[in-house]
C-alpha cells in the first residue's frame, strides 16, 4: 500500500513562543487504512487535523500528501482541501447555511461543479445517507445527530481521498452513533482512508487498523490496536483504559497470546474453554 499522508518533525504552536501544541510529530498513514487517534483532551488531535488540511501552517517540519510536500499557496491548498475532508467535532461550527440542501451544495460549487452536476450529487448523497426526512428543514431546526449526519454528507459529497472525523460520536445517542459508524464502515469498504479521533477504546480496538497515541502534542506510539492496548506503560501515561474484551480475556487467561479481536471471538473462546 502507498503512503498517502506523512509528517516529518512537525511542530505547531498557537502562540509565538515555544509552547507547542504539536511537538516533533512523525507519522505516516497508508492508503485505505483505518486510523484512530487517541489521547487525552488537549493533547493536540484537532490541531493535527487542521495541519493536515493545510489550515494551520506548521512552524517547523513538513507534511507530505502522496509523497509530495504540501505547498502553502492558494492553488495547492485548495487542491489539498479537495482531497482531505474534515468532519468537525462541533457541527454548529461547520453548518452555516439556512438549509440542508444549500449546505451540501456549498463544497461542490467551490470545487467548480456545474449546477446540474451539483444537484445530481447532492440528491445522490441525500439518498445514500438516508436523510430525506429532514433535508427540507432549516439547519437550526435539526437535532444534534441530524446535524452530524448533514456535516458528514457535506464532506462525503466532495468525494475526498481521506476523511477525517473529529470525535464522530461526541454528543450523540447510541442510535446515532450506530448510524454514523455504519456510514464510516461503508466508506472504508470502498477503500477510503479514514482518520478518526475518539475516546472510545472498545470501538478503536475493534475498528482501527492502527492507533496513533497523542500525549501533550507528541506522538508516543503508532501501532496495531493490540500492541497499544497490551502496553501498560503507554496506557498509564495517556490515562487510557483497556478495552473490555482485553480486560476480560486477561482475567480468564494467563498466557497472553492470541487476543480475541472482538466480543464475538471472545465468546467463541469462552465457549471452547467451557466445554
Amino acid at each position: 500500500m502507498n503512503t498517502i499522508l506523512e509528517c516529518k518533525n512537525l511542530y505547531f504552536s498557537y502562540s509565538d513562543n515555544d509552547n507547542y501544541a504539536l511537538k516533533n510529530v512523525n507519522l505516516s498513514i497508508k492508503q485505505g487504512q483505518k486510523i484512530a487517534l487517541m489521547g487525552a483532551n488537549g493533547s493536540g488531535k484537532s490541531t493535527f487535523f487542521l495541519c493536515c488540511a493545510g489550515i494551520l501552517n506548521p512552524c517547523k517540519g513538513d507534511l507530505f500528501f502522496h509523497n509530495e510536500k504540501i505547498k502553502y499557496d492558494k492553488k495547492n491548498l485548495l487542491n489539498l482541501r479537495s482531497k482531505i475532508g474534515i468532519v468537525f467535532q462541533e457541527p454548529d461550527n461547520q453548518l452555516f447555511c439556512a438549509s440542508v440542501y444549500e449546505e451540501i451544495s456549498f463544497g461542490l460549487l467551490n470545487l467548480g461543479f456545474s449546477e446540474e452536476e451539483t444537484r445530481l450529487k447532492v440528491d445522490n448523497i441525500i439518498k445514500t445517507l438516508n436523510i430525506q426526512s429532514f433535508c427540507e428543514k432549516p439547519t437550526h431546526a435539526l437535532s444534534g445527530g441530524q446535524k452530524k449526519q448533514v456535516a458528514i454528507a457535506d464532506i462525503l459529497v466532495m468525494s475526498p481521498e481521506i476523511i477525517i472525523f473529529d470525535e464522530p460520536a461526541a454528543a450523540l445517542d447510541p442510535k446515532h452513533i450506530k448510524i454514523v459508524r455504519e456510514i464510516i464502515d461503508k466508506l472504508t469498504e470502498n477503500g477510503l482512508t479514514v482518520i478518526m479521533s475518539t475516546h472510545d477504546v472498545d470501538y478503536a480496538y475493534e475498528w482501527a487498523d492502527e492507533i496513533i497515541l497523542f500525549d501533550n502534542g507528541e506522538v508516543i506510539m503508532q501501532a496495531k490496536p493490540i500492541d497499544i492496548f497490551t502496553n501498560n506503560t503507554v496506557l498509564d501515561k495517556t490515562n487510557l483504559e483497556k478495552p473490555t474484551v482485553i480486560k476480560l480475556f486477561e482475567s480468564i487467561n494467563d498466557n497472553k497470546i492470541n487476543y480475541p479481536k472482538n466480543l464475538k471471538e471472545l465468546e467463541t473462546y469462552i465457549k471452547a474453554r467451557l466445554k
Binding site: R81, S82, Q94, C97, S99, F106, L109, L111
Partner: peptide, 19 residues
C-alpha cells in the same frame, strides 16, 4: 466557522444552491 469553510475549499464567495 471560517476554518470549517476553508476546509471545504471556500474561496471568498459563498456559492450555494437551494433545492
Amino acid at each position: 466557522v471560517y476554518i470549517a469553510m476553508q476546509a471545504r475549499c471556500y474561496d471568498d464567495t459563498i456559492n450555494v444552491l437551494s433545492s
